[in-house]
Design a protein around this nucleic acid. Structure first.
Length: 598
RNA sequence: GCCGGCAUAGCUCAGCGGUAGAGCAGUCGAUUCGUAAUCGACAGGUCAACGGUUCAAAUCCGUUUGCCGGCUCCA
């Protein structure tokens, strides 16, 4: 017999509870609720679409899904039908019941229902017994826990249908997934839905068109980006800052080619383990050349261009290196997943004694960069040695210790991904949270025990002998394309003054002020301010509206009064009308903004 | 690559078997205006491409290209 769930029965109705920011207990409740919502949805789907087979239906970070085997597939219209049926099930207030049964019995139950995926799951479970949950006629293999009654599922919404492979493997049959979300209260559901709307409004692809920052078009190829003048301005501001800070932090800057001979990629091993991401070779004078998917082999060639002494180390070589990698057509996404992109790459080559300090410096530098771009919520993920790996274990140990110590020294909490490192070295990744609380993986600091071996890199130590250096790859922003995409969404296109493509727009009221406005614009430009003049014969209201829509930080209104008194009337996008002032004072003000990165 | 959806003017979208539409943007003209949209005229399209069904295709079918949502969340 089914009996009432021991977990859920001791708890109150969930819809009366409020989820707190980090309450583990509430998180558990939320997961329970979502998982229960997935069951209710599966029940509704089985009622509406007989013959559907169930796969899996877990709670996920912002909701839940259930995978169904239903060859016809679901349409968006089906979602509202399913929602309506779910509401019936919820209104019927059916209790959830839990039962622990021997595997054999579970097999019989699901065999009778023809649930072949469930049978596969049962066979894989290690324990002798499994738990099954039931509400009404709906029975599912499930670890639980669940809410006590279907009526506890109140605030839910189905969001989208999608294809998904059984167990995420493209060789397996494709299933139909329905995504939904559920919250403990209606209020939280509404907040979540409006967050989704806000995210859609901030979509960098939309803003990219509206603010004329960049474009992608099918005429010249998928996953390739054109940077328009305004996007170019921002990128230039980023790159200028990036270079300046790299020089300040002891880096040198390299420039390396876009293509390289086959032998280089053979030596590096890329043609063995990275070929799938590389484009076909081109023939040049009978030799195969490949477009680079990474910069490292070239940096190593620079290293090997002459003998290196321990006195030369550490070497910190950075490059804004544009690489091309094959990505499956279906995964391309605006600026966030592209086929050609510019990494803010660097390689640090150093002695074993230097790695602790070097890693700590990289981490510190990285955090400084993120802060400069307005990101303060950052998490670290440390990945250690996988089973299959190259490099001596002592080197791995030393590197992991250096990564851990650096994180501790920078007071960063890190999550440990045991065995999650690449075969050639451990790494620490940083994920940053944007203004909407979404997490993006950006920075990576990665040891490499493979390439120094393959290229036989060495330096002469104090003992006069050859030694193998340590090599670290690192990208702080990741790639300029991806970083820019995240930046656009983070600021919703409303860039701080130092990044804004147009920092000040001059707005004339009548044609009479054009000569004066031109002079002011030139003064601003001479002072390094990115200024534009809107001298069209249009009303002030229209010019202001358009400058606002372009998210220009400052508008300088110039009418007869200003021209006569040699003043500008300043309107700040953030603070509104600031009144009249001499140009010099405005330049002082905006220069301070630029310097403060505000 | 696979599943599903989508592709109409520069942008946002309507039309869904019977000769291509709107708003914004553009061009021209009028207006010279004080803090989020001045008025009018004009121009703009092989309805993504190719093939098919039909007396007739933007509309129905197929292929290709591109875009969008997924395919990593594990009873």
């Amino acid at each position: 017999m089914f009996k009432s769930d021991s977990y859920t029965s001791t708890h109150k109705r969930f819809d009366t509870l409020i989820m707190t920011e980090k309450g583990d207990e509430n998180l558990l409740k939320l997961e329970t609720l979502r998982h229960s919502a997935a069951h209710v949805m599966a029940d509704a789907v089985k009622r509406l679409f007989p013959g559907v087979k169930l796969a899996i239906g877990p709670a996920i970070e912002d909701g839940f899904y259930y995978d169904f085997d239903y060859p016809k597939g679901f349409s968006t219209e089906d979602l509202s039908k399913i929602e309506a049926e779910m509401k019936n099930i919820i209104a019927a207030a059916i209790p959830f019941e839990r039962r622990e049964v021997p595997k054999k019995e579970a097999r019989e139950i699901f065999e009778k229902m023809g649930e072949k995926y469930k049978l596969e799951l049962i066979d894989e479970l290690n324990s002798d017994t499994v738990t099954i949950y039931r509400h009404g006629d709906f029975v599912d293999l499930c670890r639980g826990p669940h809410v006590s009654n279907t009526r506890d599922v109140k605030a839910f919404k189905l969001l989208k249908v999608a294809g998904a492979y059984w167990r995420g493997d493209e060789k397996n049959p494709q299933l139909n997934r329905i995504y939904g979300t559920a919250f403990l209260s209606k209020k939280e559901l509404e907040d979540y839905l409006s967050m989704l709307e806000e995210a859609a409004k901030r979509d960098h692809r939309k803003l990219g068109t509206a603010l004329d920052l960049f474009s992608t078009m099918d005429e010249y190829g998928a996953g390739l980006i054109l940077w328009h003048p305004k996007g170019g301005r921002i990128r230039d501001a980023i790159e200028t800052f990036w270079k300046q800070e790299h020089y300040r932090n002891g880096y040198d800057i390299l420039y390396t080619p876009h293509i390289g001979r086959k032998t280089l990629w053979e030596t590096s091993g890329h043609l063995d383990f990275y070929r799938d991401s590389m484009y076909s070779p081109m023939d040049i004078d009978g030799n195969d050349y490949f477009i680079k998917p990474m910069n490292c082999p070239f940096h190593i060639m620079v290293y090997k261009s002459r003998m290196r002494s321990y006195r030369d180390l550490p070497l910190r070589w950075a490059e804004l290196g544009t690489v091309y990698r094959y990505e499956k057509s279906g995964v391309l996404h605006g600026l966030l997943r592209v086929r050609g992109f510019t990494q803010d790459d660097a390689h640090i080559i150093c002695t074993p004694e230097q790695i602790e300090d070097e890693i700590r410096e990289v981490l510190r530098f990285s955090l400084f960069m993120w802060k400069s771009f307005g990101f303060t919520n950052i998490k670290a993920y440390l990945a250690t040695r996988p089973e299959k790996a190259v490099g001596e274990p002592e080197r791995w140990e030393k590197a992991i210790t250096a990564l851990k110590n650096a994180a501790t020294a920078e007071k960063m909490d890190y999550e440990l991904d045991q065995g999650g490192g690449a075969f050639y070295g451990p790494k620490i990744d940083l994920k940053v949270k944007d203004a909407l609380g979404r997490e993006w993986q950006m920075t990576t600091i990665q040891f490499d025990f493979n390439l120094p071996e393959r290229f036989d890199m060495s330096y002469i130590g104090a003992d006069g002998q050859k030694h193998r250096p340590f090599m670290v790859h690192r990208a702080l922003l990741g790639s300029l394309e991806r970083f820019f995409g995240v930046l656009v969404e983070h600021y919703a296109g409303d860039f701080p003054v130092w990044l804004a493509p147009v920092q000040a727009t001059l707005l004339t009221i009548t044609d009479d002020q054009i000569p004066f406005a031109k002079k002011i614009r030139n003064d601003l430009k001479a002072s390094g301010v990115r200024a534009e003049l809107d001298d069209r014969n249009e009303k002030l209201g229209l010019k202001i509206r358009e400058a606002e829509l372009q998210k220009t930080p400052y508008m300088l209104v110039i009418g007869a009064k200003e021209a006569a008194a040699n003043l500008v009337a300043v309107r700040s996008r953030k603070k509104g009308d600031l009144g009249q002032m001499p140009v010099d004072r405005f330049i002082e003000m905006i220069t301070k903004d630029i310097g403060d990165k505000s």
